[in-house]
């Protein structure tokens, strides 16, 4: 009898004070009804909304159209866009996202990427979404691939199929510990396209979490184009500042 009353009471309280969604980062309740992050954790993000490189989406000086890299080198991909800067908020969330406890971050982060994809690209132009793979050993160690989770979320939001197109070779040195030149060298022959995929004439959206020099996604774009893909566009969660901006920033 007592439990019935307790249940009733709890039900009534839940009706009057319904539980609000909890922020997966800080645990705070929020009621803005946008993405699954609280107001505070959203405002920590530095979104890239203007002054981005027209080619690769990096933050640049407002007087320029292209970033230093894109002025001096060509990319295989058509375009790349990033949601925000690899700084305060997103830097923290990406770090947390590596732990399986924070896997749910794929939701809000993927939603942000979907918004950007929708804003900068015409989603009807995509046939497939794919993502940057990790090596099976790394996958076993971590349990999941962030890029895949993000791609999956975007695919659900935009109703486009997600396909795995690559196999990753042995990963000796982590890309982030190398200089630009070393990175390019390190990449050679690291990615192999799967045998049974058919991407002839397909327009592909490639998803990754971080865009630094663009070497990784560019290499993948090259492979895809070599295998007959029609066009490659990139969406990443974060990117860095352009060199010229960094100089400006530091002085």
């Amino acid at each position: 009898m007592k439990t019935i009353f307790a249940k009733l009471y709890q039900g009534l309280i839940d009706l009057i004070f319904p539980e609000l969604p909890h922020c997966p980062v800080c645990g705070r309740e929020f009621s803005h009804g946008e993405i699954n992050l609280c107001e505070k954790c959203i405002t920590k993000i530095e979104f890239i909304k203007e002054d981005y490189c027209l080619k690769c989406g990096k933050l640049i000086l407002s007087s320029q159209d292209l970033c230093y890299d894109c002025q001096h080198a060509n990319h295989y991909f058509d375009q790349s866009r990033s949601v925000g800067l690899y700084d305060s908020g997103l830097k923290e969330y990406i770090k947390l996202f590596k732990y399986s406890k924070y896997r749910t971050l794929a939701g809000p982060l993927g939603d942000l990427m979907s918004n950007y994809t929708n804003r900068f690209y015409n989603i009807k132009d995509f046939d497939i979404i794919t993502y940057v793979p990790v090596h099976p050993n790394r996958l076993a160690e971590r349990g999941f691939n962030q890029a895949f989770l993000l791609a999956k979320r975007i695919g659900e939001n935009l109703k486009i199929g997600v396909e795995c197109l690559f196999i990753r070779g042995e990963d000796t040195v982590k890309q982030s510990k190398l200089s630009r030149k070393e990175r390019l060298k390190n990449l050679k022959n690291k990615f192999i396209i799967k045998e049974d995929v058919n991407i002839g004439g397909k327009r592909i959206l490639l998803v990754d979490d971080i865009y630094t020099t663009g070497a990784t996604v560019d290499e993948l774009a090259r492979i895809l184009l070599d295998n007959g893909a029609d066009s490659i566009k990139i969406i990443t969660l974060v990117s860095g500042r352009d060199l010229s901006l960094k100089r400006d920033f530091n002085s």
């Binding site: 939603d111 979907s114 939001n157």
Partner: peptide, 10 residues
């Protein structure tokens, strides 16, 4: 993809 805020009494 919007997060639903439940307002049962509303």
């Amino acid at each position: 993809m919007l997060i639903k805020v439940r307002r049962p009494l509303v």
